[in-house]
Design a protein around this nucleic acid. Structure first.
Length: 291
DNA sequence: ACCTAAACCTGGGCGC
DNA sequence: TGCGCCCAGGTTTAGG
């Protein structure tokens, strides 16, 4: 599901596609899908697009008052943001007729919640099968997201000293710390599993029991798997909704070492990958490589 | 303050 | 065939 690499890929796609465009209309196809006053957003220009943790931040400016506001979007598990230009879509034929609910041929579809229309005729579709995601308008960005998140793992704020401090404070399983957005921003279930495998650390290990060398390995592993995710354009694993703004799947799932590989052989040592539940989520690991 | 479990949702897949 | 159940997982909220 959209984690840091997926949301970042979408952010980059949006940046290329809609910065500078004017919002001409917003159509809310499913009630409660847009929090805030739509009227004050229509007519605004998209000035910039950023990301914090898994939240997309569209900076918008009212073309008359010049006031800046922010359109915040969280895709949660099944959210998609798909761009369609004015040009007629090419219709792909001869595909297998059994379509996934996440297929984006022809939009809007039954899962489209909001359509943001631009003055040049292009449209941004927000699809969300499970209706967990949200879009809201805020004036005060700091108040909305300022204090909520830990450091971004792909910035210099993500230091060994910081992780040592955070891990030492908790006896919780290390995997739950990796998933805690207030401690480390943007890591989700897939990349937490993959990073722990790469670092050779069991997901169940109490955070405060990791030694310095393990913490450093884990830090580097988190950075490496997130960058790998970015390189492959995100992951669209089995049943995953993720698509980039052009509607294409990512390829990171072809490079998973443990995620969704229960019962299959470990890439490194051929031991069978195990699956357990932690915090209600699927947790995959190699019982031999990870200690 | 700590933790866990449920809730929010839908569709696909499974067992019976 | 079809029903009931479980699962997917980001985040918030409720309860212990």
């Amino acid at each position: 599901m959209p984690e840091l690499p997926e949301v970042e890929t979408i952010k980059r796609g949006l940046k290329k596609a809609i910065v500078g465009k004017k919002i001409s209309d917003i159509k809310v196809l499913k009630s409660k899908s847009f929090q805030g006053d739509i009227k004050e957003v229509i007519g605004s220009i998209i000035k910039d697009i950023n990301r914090r943790a898994k939240v997309l931040i569209l900076e918008i400016q009212n073309s008359k008052t010049k006031q800046l506001k922010y359109l915040l979007i969280h895709l949660k598990m099944t959210g998609q943001l798909i761009i369609r230009l004015q040009t007629k879509e090419k219709i792909t034929k001869g595909q297998n007729n059994k379509k996934s609910p996440f297929d984006v041929d022809g939009l809007p579809n039954k899962y489209t919640r909001v359509v943001i229309e631009f003055s040049d005729g292009s449209k941004l579709f927000f699809n969300d099968l499970r209706i967990f995601g949200w879009i809201k308008v805020v004036k005060d960005l700091e108040k909305a997201i300022g204090e909520k998140f830990g450091p971004e793992p792909l910035t210099k704020d993500f230091t060994l000293d910081y992780l040592k401090k955070v891990f030492q404070r908790s006896g919780k399983p290390i995997k739950l710390i990796l998933l805690d957005q207030s401690k480390i921003a943007g890591v989700g279930n897939i990349y937490a599993n993959e990073a722990l495998f790469k670092a050779g650390v069991l997901p169940t290990r109490p955070a405060n029991k990791l030694n310095e060398s393990e913490i450093e390995k884990l830090k580097n592993a988190v950075i490496t798997v997130l960058k790998e995710g970015l390189k492959y354009g995100g992951s669209s694993a089995a049943d995953e909704a993720y698509r980039n703004v052009q509607g294409q799947k990512g390829k990171m799932q072809e490079h998973f070492k443990v995620y969704e590989r229960e019962g299959q052989k470990c890439w490194r040592c051929s031991t069978k990958i195990k699956k357990i539940k932690m915090g209600g989520r699927g947790t995959y690991f190699c019982p031999a490589c990870q200690r």
